[in-house]
Design a protein around this nucleic acid. Structure first.
Lengths: 238, 238
DNA sequence: GTGTTTATAGTCGATATGACTATTAAAAAG
DNA sequence: CTTTTTAATAGTCATATCGACTATAAACAC
């Protein structure tokens, strides 16, 4: 394309983050409360402007560090979701937003940034309605994560460095909202080379009732072949 | 996020299109030849600025119509790929580009637009090196389309309204670059409800050698359950 | 006719899956 | 300290699906 000076029109470019984690057995999302209009008092996804010399990915990781207060966000799963560009998605001005999805294993209490009244984790199911088009972004993020659990090893991104197969299964059940058969889930995960690897001699004795579970680490594999499909529901969106 | 006047920085926002089709038995991509620097004489993906009152999706569909010369692009498959925002991806100025993938069944000769020296279809394998980061965008589009063939009914987007199963199979083989077993492919497609539906009493007699093939139309299904997986190659990207 | 090409039908073993039952090891209840 | 409860793990079995085949059918070239 060519740069016709008559066609050039400046846009503001921002990033919005759908930061997901599993807390208290539920899927939760990091939200900030808006301090001013529009949508003052509403919850919104954290985000901010892309700075002149950074990419959207860099901006997203910077915002993620700022909003979660985590010192090290280098290892976290951060993935571009899609870009939202409806002309009136922000009533004040033309803003194009590149949305990202981030997955966290543990859930530190966020600190409120300078531009947000409050910040905190809210259960996904009771998160709406959010400011702007953030309900749509959040729903898209949920759908994307649910789909990627099927054919990638992404579920370990929700887990701490060492985890039990029960915890891993809980990730699937929480994101998909369905129960899975435990022996079958085990069989599938262990039959996939590189999905998880056993931590030698270790067993989780922490607090839980029942037989202690063996501990596993995330393996080197990234894809799941064949995939681990959600219990069939018809007409699933493409 | 808040609109701090010190943080606000204008960007140019464009769309880039990876328009794919199958011509002469090969995967081909619509390219335009740049008429001026930078990259004068290089091939590039078609694209252009997002106008002040349109979304990126609207801009992409407008550009698609302009570049292909097709009167009706409403039915064509157009899908957001991802957004490319590296600060120096365009040497002249800060440009954030929302990339789209479009799939065409037939391949009209494109007309050169006002801002391109030439436009035409080039085989995917001999398309590079392209201007800017368009090699990356094109490779991402190819990977995305290949992956979506596995678990969606997207392949029909490459086919005319009525097609044979051999033509449909050829779509898979061309995009994936692998041969498929014909009886097994038939069985899989016909066993998936809503993927294709037979055109009653019709058979393609056009020119081809061998037994005439039955004609099919795209069915109402969008997802493929279970998926039609590529012949296994290890370490497929997520 | 013969041979070639492509479409279509069907077979068979290997593998994966869904729905189960059984056993084991720990904590909690009594 | 024995029983109950809870959760992890092992294993079974029928079915569905897949990959690799073979076989037949319908067109054209010669």
């Amino acid at each position: 394309m060519e740069y016709d000076k008559y066609a050039y029109e400046p846009f503001a470019v921002t990033v919005d983050l759908a930061v997901l984690t599993i807390r208290d057995g539920a899927l939760q999302v990091l939200l900030v409360e808006r301090g001013q209009d529009p949508y003052a008092g509403h919850w919104a996804l954290p985000g901010g402007f892309v700075e002149p010399r950074e990419s959207a990915e860099t901006a997203a990781r910077r915002e993620l560090a700022e909003e979660t207060g985590l010192a090290d966000v280098t290892g976290l799963h951060l993935e571009q979701l899609r870009t939202y560009s409806e002309p009136d998605r922000d009533p004040r001005m033309r803003v194009v937003s590149v949305a990202f999805t981030a997955l966290l294993p543990d859930a530190p209490e966020p600190r409120a940034g300078s531009d947000a009244a409050r910040a905190g984790w809210l259960p996904y199911d009771s998160a709406g309605p959010l400011a702007f088009d953030h309900d749509t972004i959040l729903a898209d993020a949920h759908e994307r994560v649910g789909a990627k659990l099927e054919y990638t090893c992404l579920a370990t991104a929700f887990c701490p460095p060492e985890f039990t197969l029960g915890e891993l299964q809980h990730v699937y059940e929480t994101v998909w909202g369905t129960a899975l058969d435990r022996p079958n889930f085990r069989r599938k995960v262990l039959a996939t080379p590189g999905f998880v690897e056993a931590v030698p001699g270790a067993a989780r004795l922490t607090g839980g009732r029942g037989k202690p579970a063996a501990l596993y680490r995330a393996g080197p594999a990234t894809a799941l072949h064949p995939p681990l499909l959600r219990p069939s529901r018809e007409g699933r969106p493409a």
